[in-house]
Amino acid sequence: MEQTKPDLIDSLLRQVAAALERVIAKSTPLSSELSVSAEERRDRLDVICMQCLAIGEAIKWLDRMSQGTLFSPFPSVDWKGAMGFQDVIAHQYFDLDEELVLLICEQSIPRVYEAILQIQRDRSALTE
């Protein structure tokens, strides 16, 4: 059975929220003073980058499917940055600055996550 456009949007929003939760969980020990081995640090950064690739691609799809209307109520969120970060990871993976990745995880990811949750709540309220 083929998904309708609203169902596909809701599905992508759930997947993005789950990926953002994973990024937050994996980045927290790296940003704190907790001792993490070099190998675990690299593994966590790999997970973060893979999730950010998926998040950026999904945000691009969501923006296209909604013709830009899904994210417009959240002008304080850097949606273009979220989409662009995916491109940076894809094309400059071996040259990524770990500190920049962690800064994005600390400062930008929580805002994107909160906006995605609010979009989900707003969409859910429309169907009730």
Rank of each mutant, 00 (worst) to 15 (best):
V36Q: 07
E106I: 02
I109W: 07
I89A: 10
C52K: 12
S37V: 02
E106W: 04
D122S: 12
A82D: 08
A25I: 00
S124M: 11
L20S: 05
C105W: 02
E114V: 00
D7G: 08
L8F: 12
I119R: 11
M65A: 15
A54R: 15
V23W: 07
V112M: 05
D7K: 09
E40P: 02
K80R: 14
S76I: 09
D46S: 09
C52L: 15
F71A: 10
C49D: 06
E33P: 03
M50A: 13
F74G: 00
E39V: 10
D46F: 06
C105Y: 02
R64V: 09
K26A: 12
L8A: 11
D97Y: 01
E33H: 11
H91G: 04
E128N: 08
A25W: 01
S32H: 09
I9G: 05
C52T: 11
L45E: 14
R123M: 03
A115V: 03
C52Q: 15
L12C: 00
L30Y: 04
A82Y: 07
T69P: 01
E2W: 02
D63V: 05
L117E: 13
E99M: 07
A125D: 14
D95A: 13
E57R: 15
C49E: 14
R14Y: 08
A18K: 12
I119W: 05
L117Q: 14
L103A: 10
